[in-house]
């Protein structure tokens, strides 16, 4: 019974921490955008125009470390959004650990299928052009 308590509590903490960290990055990034009047060499008025051509296609994820170091608001918001995307995914990892402890092979396999779908969406599909 002790073990089950751990899993639920850890899941709960991970979810909450993920949301808080991500919101921090998004808020800080927004403040940077306004204070520095834009980011990634675009002005704020360009970025806030709904019909501009600046969208997530224009943001290379590999540029995040340099972007964060340069205090670029766009990269802070991007980091926040990706922390948010990874928050529910990390819960699946915690569940796998628990299923492994229980030697519940069926559910270990099913969790791996879920992770496969997630990473298929992130790593394989971007390389297929529609």
């Amino acid at each position: 019974m002790q073990k089950e308590i751990d899993l639920d509590l850890i899941t709960s903490y991970v979810l909450r921490t993920g949301v808080v960290v991500s919101l921090f990055f998004i808020l800080f990034g927004t403040i940077l955008l306004f204070v520095r009047n834009g980011g990634m060499n675009h002005t704020l008025s360009y970025l806030s125009n709904f019909s501009n051509s600046f969208d997530s296609h224009s943001i290379p994820l590999g540029g995040i470390p340099a972007g964060l170091a340069a205090l670029d608001g766009i990269y802070y918001i991007t980091t926040g959004l990706w922390v948010l995307i990874f928050t529910p995914i990390s819960v699946v990892f915690i569940a796998i650990i628990d299923f492994l402890k229980d030697k519940n092979k069926l559910y270990v396999a099913m969790s791996i299928v879920v992770l496969f779908n997630l990473f298929f969406a992130m790593l394989v599909i971007p390389r297929i052009t529609l």
């Binding site: 998004i26 955008l33 943001i59 879920v114 969406a121």
Partner: peptide
């Protein structure tokens, strides 16, 4: 959350997330 995370990453790579709006 897990379902939306899958969809979000596909939207991201196809350029359909605008950081100004999403933030």
């Amino acid at each position: 959350g897990i379902t939306a995370a899958t969809g979000s990453s596909i939207y991201w790579y196809n350029g359909y997330i605008q950081v100004f709006i999403a933030a």
